[in-house]
């Protein structure tokens, strides 16, 4: 095998190898729209985060606008402190309410932004005041059963 043919084959091999890496990055991993751009940080305290995990999506009106970057427990307030990285392009009013929702009945949990009407926007590092805890399914069910029982009792 002469040198030129060998170089050609190796060049071809490296080219398709890199092309498949690119394919994995763009088409499979969706690098283009994931959080490689500029982000800013917001924090929020929740009474109960349920099954929320690091890297869970942050959505507003169903669109992913950021991701959860850190979750820790605050020893003083006994609440969960969640940090998020949000896309620089999206700004939210200061009276936005954060809720923890579940996609589908048993799907993954995410943070939802319910936008308020304030003209001032949340800035990098700010803490969001209004939050709503995760809906814990077991609690919901037991509450339902209890109410039902109470209702039945009242009828009698």
């Amino acid at each position: 095998m002469n040198r030129a043919a060998l170089d050609l084959w190796v060049g071809f091999f490296v080219a398709i190898g890199l092309a498949s890496l690119l394919f994995l990055a763009l088409k499979v991993g969706n690098l283009a729209s994931s959080s490689t751009g500029e982000t800013y940080r917001l924090m929020a305290e929740f009474d109960n985060i349920g099954g929320l995990k690091v890297r869970a999506p942050v959505k507003s009106a169903g669109v992913v606008v950021g991701r959860v970057s850190e979750i820790r427990f605050d020893q003083e307030s006994y609440r969960a402190v969640v940090s998020m990285q949000l896309d620089q392009r999206y700004k939210f009013p200061r009276d936005t309410i954060l809720t923890i929702n579940t996609s589908g009945l048993l799907g993954e949990q995410y943070i939802g932004f319910e936008v308020g009407g304030d003209t001032a926007v949340l800035k990098d590092g700010e803490k969001v005041k209004k939050t709503q805890s995760a809906v814990v399914l077991e609690k919901l069910i037991s509450q339902f059963m209890f109410n039902k029982a109470a209702e039945d009792g009242g009828k009698k």
């Binding site: 890496l21 994995l24 990055a25 088409k27 499979v28 991993g29 969706n30 690098l31 729209s33 994931s34 490689t36 890297r55 992913v64």
Partner: peptide, 19 residues
């Protein structure tokens, strides 16, 4: 098929680690 894949596969977490 593609959009679910793109939403769940993370570039840094999955692809870079695979490499």
């Amino acid at each position: 098929f593609w959009s679910q894949m793109q939403a769940s596969v993370d570039f840094r977490e999955d692809i870079v680690n695979g490499v």
